[in-house]
Structure formats: structure tokens, C-alpha cells
Design a protein around this nucleic acid. Sequence first.
DNA 1: CGCTAATGTCTACACCCGTAGACTTGAGCA
DNA 2: TGCTCAAGTCTACGGGTGTAGACATTAGCG
Lengths: 204, 204
Amino acid sequence: MVHRRDAAATREAILRAGVEAFTRSGYDGVGVREIAASAGVTAMLVNRYFGSKEGLFAEVVDVSVAERTVLGSDPRTLARDIASALVRRTAPEADTLDPFLLALRSAANPRAAEILRAGIEKHVEKHAVEVSRAPRPNVAIALALINGFWLMRKVIGSTALNEADEPTLAETLEQLFQILLDTPRVPLSAVGALAGRRELGKTR
Amino acid sequence: MVHRRDAAATREAILRAGVEAFTRSGYDGVGVREIAASAGVTAMLVNRYFGSKEGLFAEVVDVSVAERTVLGSDPRTLARDIASALVRRTAPEADTLDPFLLALRSAANPRAAEILRAGIEKHVEKHAVEVSRAPRPNVAIALALINGFWLMRKVIGSTALNEADEPTLAETLEQLFQILLDTPRVPLSAVGALAGRRELGKTR
DNA sequence: CGCTAATGTCTACACCCGTAGACTTGAGCA
DNA sequence: TGCTCAAGTCTACGGGTGTAGACATTAGCG
């Protein structure tokens, strides 16, 4: 039987409303009253369960960053997995609820940015580095490429990216990720193909 | 003779304070009182000269995107030029006054975003430049990498990027840009070095 | 049933915001 | 010298913010 007073469910509802609201409007763009209302409760309950608006935001960042990861796949196919997932998720018809938007729209507030930084780094530290033996700055650059691609395709709406052939797009990205993540035993032929895929059919 | 009451100079001071404040904190992150104070006047004078906060923001966007430096360069060194400029301009100690930051930090507010979009398109239309003969999607991906790198390093403040060795960072980025922009006559040695620069030393 | 503690609401406070309108000040000119 | 009007300030208003503390409600249990 479903209780009308269910603390766990209420907490979950607030959290989900927070994810939706913060992603849509950014940290400063939404008030706790609005979040609470869309969860069907009062503003004070937000503080009751999450301590403060910042506390809720921190947890929103945590679940947002955590639940959308492609990592954990086979290191040998990591670059391809990331590339194809990125192209698929940034397709024009995909839903717009994404941690990248959360970061983009909340980054203006220094306190929110600090929470974001901590949440992202915690995630990077936890999952990314242990999957790939790549140097940490390279992992960060890969993340930058992901975010930038997201920005151009989904926020700016770059026609060059939206009208491009998606498999080709994914292939190009895969090559970049492969370099950054330094996938073990990259076939040399692939490396050559990537540098001059029109001219280098013959190895000297 | 310098008048203590100089309308043009006062207007200029407010505008420059606006550029600084909006770029640093975003549209919602700063109030007209703060902008006015840092220009040495009262909040109401902002409205007197610019009509409203939005009016000031529109003019700030206008001058910010107008004075953006154009990147023209030898195609053979384009990748390196972009990479080094990117690393240099996103250094932690670099001044943070950039139209990209202005856009990023203000994009959360829909009204500000609309003003931004209008201002950017007005100037893009005026200064559209052909950068490279590379496939257009690749140029867009390069732009995505630039923007993402900027986001991660300057806005989020990724420690992995800020603590990394800058020459190495620039080198990695250069390799990526070289692939994307398909610079003619890529030296094969550079391609090999890029694919496995730690493991492939045995061929020396 | 009656008690208790968890669950949720209400009121209030202190502060911020953008801006409208009345007011004061001073520079340039006759 | 006196006048005039632009330049700049002051006060205030209506509304929004996050959140602290007192209050009300209900579920679970003896």
C-alpha cells in the first residue's frame, strides 16, 4: 500500500524535480519554492531533506553525472563506445535532459561551479581513470571534447554538425578519443588511416 | 578641460564596468547597483543611459563580440597556432575577460541568451571567415574542442587541466587539431608519436 | 483507542533585486 | 551675476530569495 507520507518517495520526488529544474534553468535560474512545488511539497521540505539549496544541487550533480556514463566498457572499444554514444545522445531529436546542460547553465554561480567541479572530478576519478590508463590530462581533454561537442550540437545548434553524416562524425570522434585515451595496441593501419585517410593507402 | 560631469565618459565607464561584471559573473550574477558602484555612480544612472539592465547587457554584448580577435594564420601552422593560443588564453592566470565567458555565464537566462544570440549573429554575419579547407563537420568538431576545453579549464576549473604541463597540453591539442583540420602533408613521424608516444620508442 | 515521533506546512525575517519618480547639484551661457 | 537644464543622487516600492523556527498533521505501534 502506498502511503501518502513516504519520506523516501518524497525525497526522490524532490531530487528528480531538482534535476529537471536545475538542468532546465541553472542553479540561479530556479528557486527552491519552484522545485518544491513541482515535487508537490513545500519549500522547507527541501531544506529538511537536503540541508539547503546547495545541498540539493550537490546531490543533483551527483546523480546527473553518475547515471549518464558510458564508462565501464571494454577498454579496447572504449573510444568507439564513447563516440557512438556521444553522437547518438546529441542527435537533434534526443531529449534535452543532460548533465552537460546542468553544468553549462549553472557554471556562472561560483558556488555552484565549485560543487560541479567537485562532482565531476569525483566521477572522473572514480570511473574514467581506472578504465583507461591514459594520462589524466588526456582524459580531461576527452571530457572537454565531449562537452564542447555537446555545446555546439545541442545548445548552439551548429548546422555543420546537425547536417553531417552521423557515422562519419562518430568515426572522426572515435579517432580522437583513441588518441586521447591511448587505447592499447592501436592497429597502425588505423593510425595511418586517421592521419591521411585519403592519401595514405600505401605504407612506405 | 576635463569636466567633472562628463556624460560620455560616465557612459563609457558604466559600459566598461558592465563588460567586466557580466563577463565575470554572468547576467544574473551581478546587479545594477554593483556595476554602477564599480563605475563610481549610482544604479539609476545605468537605467538613465541604457534604459534598463537588459539594455546595458545588449550594448555589452555588442562591444564584446566586436573586439574579438580574428585568428588568421598560415595553414601549415594553423593547428599549432590554435593549440598554443588556446592553452595560453585559458591559463589560470590569464585575464578572464572574454566574450566566450560572457556568453557561457549568461546563457542560463533566456532573455540574456536571446540578446546574446542576436548580438553574435549580427557580428558573425559581418565577419564570417573561411578558416580552412577541411570538411566542415571537422571544423565544427575543432570548434567544439576549443569551446569544451575552455569550459573545462576556465569555467569548471578542472584541476587535471590546470595542473597539467602546458607544453604537453598544447602538443596533445595540436595533434587533434591537425587531424581535424587535415593539414596538408602531416609528417608520418608525428602521427606515430601521437598514437603511442610512450610505448613506441623502440623504433628509435 | 491513545501516544509519539516522523512528516510536512505556515509564518516570518532579513536581505537582495530592478526601477520609477522626486529631488539636488553644478556647468555653460547670456 | 543669475538662469537653465543636463547630470547625478535619494528614497521608496513591489516583489523575490533562502531559510530558521513554531506549528499542524498523520502513520505506526502499544
